[in-house]
Design a protein around this nucleic acid. Structure first.
Lengths: 126, 126
DNA sequence: CCGAATCCAAAAAGATACTG
DNA sequence: CAGTATCTTTTTGGATTCGG
């Protein structure tokens, strides 16, 4: 359960720890840029600059920051080619690919309900 | 496509608009609190205060803000009972339920890869 | 009980410059 | 080309108060 940070019963100290960890991870990945990176990297291995071009509007800083976070959590693998100029490639590994499937679902959802959302917004804003 | 805000070809002005709208919606919902609300509300209709209790750590302000946003986008229905004290119930409607399925996937992913992530973090932090 | 508005601290994010 | 660091600005979010 990700919604509850602490479980009810006193003995389940481990579950409590697992819960708060789960929440932490959820907070890490449940953000716009992280999900867009996962989605983009899902198609193929990309270099830093390519990734930057693929994801409209992301800044150098945000990209670096989120790539580090994804690497730390073991979703992305970073491979440095010691050439000059340097060439750094990012690959979505197995756990990342698994998550990607659910992100795909979110993207599909977005296009499917686009019209419905537009209508709802018009009504709400009136 | 949600990753690209603008399509390449000049004539597809409509697709461009749809893309930027999709991106806007994606930014709206791809955040921690919105997803946790969707997940929690997926189980049953809840009052404002109940929702606040269910979601560990959410503030009054964040809850209000995200509920308005979800209502505006037509994922959540808000029903006010004109009693005193007031009673306001929030229900996840069809489009919200559809999205919830993908959020479930994210939650499942989190628990499944918890161990893997913990290991990866340990290695990375070393 | 719910919600809107205000104020203020904290965090996020953009811009820029510098390194290997 | 990729990454880090710093600085500044903007945005976010929490606390509080007041109103229906």
């Amino acid at each position: 359960m990700v919604t509850k940070q602490f479980s009810g019963s006193p003995q389940e100290a481990d579950l409590t720890r697992a819960d708060s960890l789960a929440r932490e991870i959820f907070s890490d990945i449940a953000n716009k840029w992280a999900l867009l990176i996962i989605e983009t990297l899902g198609e193929r291995t990309l270099r830093f600059g390519e990734l930057r071009n693929e994801i409209e509007g992301i800044s150098h800083k945000m990209l670096t920051q989120n790539l580090r976070m994804l690497e730390r959590n073991g979703l992305v693998e970073r491979k440095v080619h010691p050439t000059v100029p340097p060439r750094v490639e990012y690959t979505l590994v197995e756990s990342g690919q698994a998550l990607r499937k659910t992100v795909d679902g979110m993207c599909d959802w977005t296009s499917r309900y686009l019209g419905h959302i537009e209508d709802s917004r018009r009504r709400f804003d009136a």
